[in-house]
Amino acid sequence: MNQQEEAIIIQKCCKGDHVAFSVLATAYQNMAITIAYNIVTNQADAEDVAQDAFIKAYTSIKSFKGNARFLTWLYRIVVNTALNKQKRTTLIYVEQPEEHYDEAVEDSMASLKSNEQKKYIRQALLHISEAERVCIILYYLNDWSIAEIGDITGFSV
């Protein structure tokens, strides 16, 4: 989606066209969930966080100033929502079961290898700090500049 299309959709959303917002949600859902996942480290929670973040973004879209990038603004909401969720989860800590990969169903070696690789990458990411994880994801998967990442996360550069 280019910036012009994005601007048109945002204008529609500002006028209360919530169907137009579904286009934005579909386009950016995976990245929003990935960012949330690297903070809350749980897929179900990450989806909840991303969902809340999208709803917050829709309700406050009128406050979005066109001078910033929409994605910067949206991902900042995702990061803040995830950090709040993480704080609450830390207060009421319940041990989560490890993410389960149904290997029996996926019997092909290729998908097994791919799943294993994903598992190892995610495990490796869990060994670094939350702030570092989010910064790495934003830097390598989105090509954000260091200044933009600092703007989104609020982490000092």
Binding site: A25, F54, K118
Partner: peptide, 24 residues
């Protein structure tokens, strides 16, 4: 970058957008 884009990207569930729209 290649490794992360293959392994670190988390995919949304099929009905994610529907859930967001229902919430809205």
């Amino acid at each position: 970058r290649k490794l992360l884009s293959e392994g670190a990207m988390v995919k949304a569930s099929a009905d994610f957008t529907n859930k967001v729209m229902a919430g809205i």
